[in-house]
C-alpha cells in the first residue's frame, strides 16, 4: 500500500513541460466553443482566443465572458454580411468583422469593407481604425482610398501604423485621419503623414523586421 504514493512521486517528478503544455481547454470554455460552432460559426477563433487567455493566466470566468461576447458579435457580423460571409476565407473574415463590430462598426460598414479587394485585410484595417477612435464614415473613406492604391494590403497596414504613431504624438484620431487622407491623395504612403517630430520618414510597411521591443515594466500576468 505504501508503494503507491512513491510511484506517484516518481511519476510527478518525471512530468515534462511538453507533457503539461497540451492540456485541453476547461469544460465550460469548451462548451462555449461548441455552442458557437453549433450556431454555424467557425470554432478556430474561439479556441485561439481561449488558449490565449488561459496562457496569459486570465481567470477562466473572464475568458468565458469574453468568448460569449465574441460569439454575439460574430453572430451579428455574420448576419450583417449575409452571402458576403461565404467563401474560403470565411473564418478569417468573420474574425476580422467581429473585431470591427466590437470596435463599433455598423452592419452596413461591415458589408462595405467586405466588398473591397483583400477584404480580410480591409476588415482588419476598419476594425483597427475604429479601435483608434476614428469615426466609421472616415474610416471607411480611408479604407476605400487605400483599396484603390497599387498595394491595398500594404496601404491598410501602413494606415493603422501611421494612425497609432500620430496618436502617440498627441494627435486626435479625426485630425490624424484627415492628414492621412490628404497625404494619400497626393500619392504618398500613409506613413508620410506622420509629422517629422517622430524622427523622420517612417519605415515602409513592407519591412518585416520588427525592432527592439522595450518591455517597460512587467504586466505582471501569470500566477
Amino acid at each position: 500500500m505504501n508503494r503507491i504514493p512513491w510511484i506517484v512521486v516518481v511519476l510527478a517528478a518525471g512530468l515534462s513541460t511538453e507533457a503539461l503544455a497540451g492540456e485541453p481547454l476547461p469544460a465550460r470554455v469548451q462548451e462555449t466553443v461548441r455552442q458557437a460552432e453549433a450556431a454555424g460559426l467557425p470554432a478556430g477563433p474561439f479556441e485561439a482566443k481561449a488558449q490565449e487567455g488561459l496562457a496569459k493566466g486570465v481567470p477562466e470566468d473572464r475568458v468565458e465572458a469574453l468568448l460569449l461576447q465574441m460569439r454575439e458579435r460574430m453572430r451579428e457580423a455574420d448576419r450583417a454580411l449575409g452571402e458576403l460571409a461565404r467563401g474560403s476565407d470565411r473564418a478569417e473574415l468573420l474574425q476580422a468583422a467581429t473585431r470591427a463590430r466590437t470596435a463599433g462598426a455598423s452592419g452596413e460598414g461591415l458589408a462595405e469593407a467586405a466588398r473591397h479587394t483583400h477584404r480580410v485585410a480591409a476588415m482588419w484595417c476598419l476594425g483597427d481604425l475604429l479601435g483608434a477612435g476614428v469615426g466609421e464614415r472616415e474610416a471607411l473613406r480611408l479604407v476605400t482610398q487605400a483599396s484603390q492604391e497599387g498595394d491595398p494590403a500594404g496601404r491598410y497596414r501602413e494606415m493603422v501604423a501611421a494612425m497609432q504613431r500620430m496618436q502617440g504624438l498627441g494627435m486626435g484620431p479625426a485630425a490624424a485621419a484627415h492628414q492621412m487622407s490628404q497625404t494619400m491623395a497626393r500619392g504618398q504612403p500613409p506613413l508620410a503623414a506622420v509629422p517629422e517630430q517622430a524622427g523622420g520618414p517612417a519605415r515602409s510597411g513592407g519591412d518585416a523586421d520588427h525592432g527592439a521591443g522595450q518591455g517597460g515594466g512587467s504586466e505582471g500576468q501569470g500566477n
Binding site: 493566466g57 473585431r99 497596414r157 520588427h210 521591443g213 522595450q214 518591455g215 512587467s218 504586466e219 500566477n223
Partner: peptide
C-alpha cells in the same frame, strides 16, 4: 514577449498594437 518564464510584456517597438480583450496589448504583424 514572455520574460523569465512568467511576465507577459508587450513589444513596444511594434508598428501596430491591439487590445487583446483581457487588458493586455498584443503586437500585430500583418
Amino acid at each position: 514577449f514572455v520574460v523569465d518564464g512568467h511576465t507577459w510584456t508587450p513589444d513596444l517597438a511594434a508598428a501596430t498594437w491591439v487590445d487583446d480583450g483581457f487588458g493586455h496589448r498584443n503586437a500585430v504583424i500583418e
